[in-house]
Write a protein that binds this DNA or RNA. Structure first.
Lengths: 347, 347
DNA sequence: GTGCATCCTGTAACCGTTTCCGGTGCTAGT
DNA sequence: ACTAGCACCGGAAACGGTTACAGGATGCAC
């Protein structure tokens, strides 16, 4: 049964390559790591041997002896959520280019799980991490920062100064969305936020208020409802609260696309037509936006770009390069589709 | 030197624990790995030292010295696709319970990428892999199998005997979907398939034909169109082909939910009401199904379960346990929603 | 010819585990 | 009393790399 063929019993090691090339293992290692102090001929010989033996370095060994593992951890609340999937995809792509890989750690929104996961991650398995929407408090993260490099994507709460953060320009996006509605003539503009303690939400609120103020419209607290960012009963209730007002809004800015979709459904159930009777703007520009009918006007977050950015920031951190900008905000962009229309004047 | 000051003295090692407990490192290792030949007192002492020092074993070292890495690779065409996200989520959950992690490898549907990725994966980084919808041919996989344990989820093409496979019961699902339409009185039942070379599609076709045959309905080749599984122009064209037939179908079975959604849009554009004028069934039961209006009748694939199953199969493989069932098919389930209705008899 | 800097290369000491192999000390059988 | 068997534990050799350090060629200036 043991074939003479390449019955792959032994993987090529650096020592094999060394003897094949007639050099020492140190030299092979140098070549492999692109060190400059190797004679061209030698380098050539080594590379040839490497090729012939189909050698590639054992990452564990490299990691053990002080080098890097080539792995970076990514914690993410939910893998199946499209939102995170896209960020993940961007990050993974950026890493692939560096021949590095992602160790995936879904936290299921559980703080404890995230902590133990991180603990495992730092114990030699990974070189650093990207934490998406982490559960940790600023203090916890500051402590962690002492001995493990990481960058946060889309923080839940405001984080201390020194912590590297990548996020979208929430306020600007919200402002653009609101201005869009204002420019269509709407004045009673409602909002359905997400969890109010999330910084993303407070910033979007700021943008929303800012735009209203700039247009001379007094914000009406009754026009703001809270949901949980999911297309479920909580959102339906929030939508109902606004739509059933004595003087309901003519346009509503939903703080994400899920909520916008839920809102449109609730509106439809009340016989309201979107956009004729009610304009709706979402946030995220998720896959949904183009699928629902009417298609959704929404604020695009550059999710994949955020993932890529987080990775490149992290890589710089890993190389101990001076990192100038520790907090990166990526621009959002309003995408106008069918769910918004000029204010329908009286009847 | 703007180094991140490593004031974090040193991570505890097995030697530290050993000397603290007054035993040898071998003994500590034994305790850590739950070997039986350690005296209770000694074990207790070691565990105490471990606790005091906050020690946890360095996985790279463990991996190097012949043990396992605790990492398994997962190749996946696209992370952002909800379909794969859910499988991934199931797999990750199952792995988490074993204190193992996923190394994520998006292949972007590129064969070459998948090959190099796999190559890297087997060189010490991972203990095994789960390949989702792999690009490799059966022959390639058979070769790979000789020196690397893996299991395939949802194969693209039929695979050789010995390759472990987890998939959904495509034929049964398709049959259920078709029978549902038949029971509603439909007789001209169209189908929009995915890539015809995919085994999932041929099996679904089989189920579809089987159900028709059982009901005494002669399959009409004109009623079958091909799409690319995406909600795009190809799907729109396929939908148009069927809808514009002189004698168009009264019901259409779309081979996934994306296609169903595209179909519904095309139907709407032609002034057809779903389900009154056209019944639509999808496949997958993705997130979309409940969001579109009307909500989609569809065949649910147990995606998370497939992920979990793949992992448990792989783990058994890793432990060299005799694996009885190498090919696992998980049952699908028809979920009836709003997009299907009894045949609307004449006008 | 000598001294010396420069370039390249090899030796060997790690990195933190696992595990083989063998050595205690103790019990029990003869 | 002697030895076999057992339960427990320690020494030390891997595992496959990286890297500090040392040393052998060279070339060049003097």
């Amino acid at each position: 049964m043991t074939n003479t063929d390449n019955n792959h019993t032994k993987r090529a090691t650096i020592r094999g390559v060394a003897s094949a090339a007639g050099v020492s293992i140190a030299t092979v290692s140098r070549v492999l790591n692109g060190r400059p102090d190797v004679a061209p001929d030698t380098r050539e010989a080594v590379l040839r041997a490497v090729r012939e033996q189909g050698f590639s370095t054992n990452r564990n060994a490299r990691a053990l002896s002080g080098g890097r593992t080539g792995l970076i951890g990514v914690t993410v609340p939910l893998v199946e959520a499209a939102y995170f999937g896209v960020i993940l995809s961007g990050a993974s792509e950026a890493l692939y280019e560096q021949d590095m890989r992602i160790v995936l750690c879904p936290t299921l929104h559980q703080h404890e799980r995230e902590v133990t996961l991180l603990d495992r991650l730092m114990r030699g398995t990974t070189d650093g991490a990207v934490l998406m929407l982490p559960e940790e408090s600023s203090a916890e993260l500051t402590a962690l920062q002492r001995d493990y490099p990481f960058v946060v994507v889309d923080p839940r709460v405001a984080l201390a100064e020194g912590i590297p953060v990548v996020s979208a320009a929430h306020a600007a996006g919200a402002r653009a969305a609101t201005e869009h509605l204002l420019s269509l003539g709407h004045r009673r503009i409602g909002a359905i936020t997400g969890p109010p303690e999330w910084i993303a939400c407070t910033e979007r609120i700021n943008g929303y208020h800012g735009a209203l103020a700039a247009a001379g419209v007094l914000p009406d607290p009754a026009l703001v409802a809270v949901s949980d960012f999911r297309n479920g009963p909580v959102t339906a209730a929030a939508a109902a609260k606004l739509l059933d007002l004595p003087d309901p809004p003519t346009a509503i800015f939903a703080f994400n696309d899920n909520v916008a979709v839920g809102l449109m459904r609730t509106a439809r159930e009340r016989g309201l037509r979107v956009p004729e009777d009610l304009s709706v703007v979402g946030f995220d520009d998720s896959e949904l936006a183009e699928i629902v009918a009417p298609t959704l006007t929404t604020v695009r977050q550059p999710l994949a770009e955020m993932g890529r950015m987080a990775v490149s920031l992290l890589l710089r951190l890993l190389e101990n390069q001076r990192v100038d900008a520790l907090r990166i905000q990526l621009a959002t962009k309003l995408v106008v589709r069918e769910s918004t229309a000029p204010l329908h004047v009286a009847r």
